[in-house]
């Protein structure tokens, strides 16, 4: 497994995409640092990149990568290695590459010009969302034999989670505005990994506003470690379930 991962990683880290992506992130981070007067403005601007652009690029790249590597995967499957190992090595290589790009592209400017806890949270959120959307992309890829269709599914998932879903939640709470909806909203937000990443950031940037909720429940949830723990747990479900599902399909898939 580690051997397969080593070679898969070696290949993907030298790809033109990895370099372009890292440079792109670094340029974005550098320009944001240049125009912002303080760290909180930096994290606000970077946050939009992290929760919008990073999932999009992760989803599209992971899908494309899966299909571009399909013949090689077939060759691997003809070798004496377990299917699950082939699958995981491919998946982990993509996740590690995307995470490393974020870590270098955003991390180096942070080392140079400073970071606060919200920026460090942001790095983590970016890496988690990359992993989650890679999982989605692999699921889409193993579900269909058609590359265009798989990219379509990945894009649809991205649009759904970063835009449509929030609109849907907003519509619901608008329609039921007369009821106490705080807990329901929190529950609904749990059903979207992008929102979870965003809430982790809100807990850094807007804790004062979040504390405006009525009740000890929210005070506990947002200000103690409990909320973060719950969110990370739900995020790991969002990570593990699509990956597990696509792994199962991959195991039974014909190549």
């Amino acid at each position: 497994m580690l051997k397969l991962l080593k070679y898969a990683l070696y290949d993907i880290l030298k790809s033109r995409f990895a370099i372009i992506y890292t440079v792109f992130l670094a340029l974005v981070a550098i320009s944001i640092y240049q125009v912002s007067d303080d760290l909180s403005k930096v994290s606000l601007s970077l946050m939009n990149i992290m929760i919008m652009v990073v999932p999009l690029i992760s989803a599209v790249f992971a899908t494309t990568h899966f299909y571009n590597n399909l013949e090689f995967v077939e060759l691997m499957l003809a070798q004496p290695v377990k299917r699950s190992q082939v699958f995981l090595s491919q998946l982990l290589a993509v996740i590690l590459m995307l995470s490393l790009s974020i870590l270098i592209g955003f991390g180096l400017p942070m080392l140079l010009w400073g970071a606060d806890s919200s920026l460090i949270t942001l790095l983590a959120v970016g890496m988690i969302l990359s992993a989650v959307f890679t999982g989605f992309a692999f699921l889409a890829s193993v579900m269909t034999r058609d590359k265009a269709k798989a990219i379509g599914i990945s894009l649809a998932l991205w649009i759904y989670f970063s835009l449509v879903y929030d609109g849907f939640v907003l519509y619901i709470i608008y329609s039921f505005a007369d009821y106490p909806l705080e807990k329901a909203t929190l529950g609904l937000v749990m059903l979207n990994p992008v929102d979870l990443g965003r809430i982790l950031m809100l807990m850094q940037l807007d804790i004062s506003a979040l504390m405006g909720y009525t009740g000890a429940f929210f005070k506990q949830f947002f200000s103690s470690g409990i909320g973060m723990l719950v969110i990370l747990m739900v995020l790991s479900i969002w990570l593990v379930v699509p990956i597990g599902l696509s792994g199962r399909i991959f195991k039974k898939k014909d190549f």
């Binding site: 929030d166 608008y174 705080e182 909203t185 809100l202 979040l210 405006g212 009525t214």
Partner: peptide, 20 residues
């Protein structure tokens, strides 16, 4: 203004939808 009417809506703050 929306949050003033529906406090629960804070949780969607900074989402792409809301920024839009």
């Amino acid at each position: 203004v929306i949050v003033e009417k529906i406090p629960a809506a804070v949780m969607l703050w900074r989402s792409f939808m809301v920024t839009l």
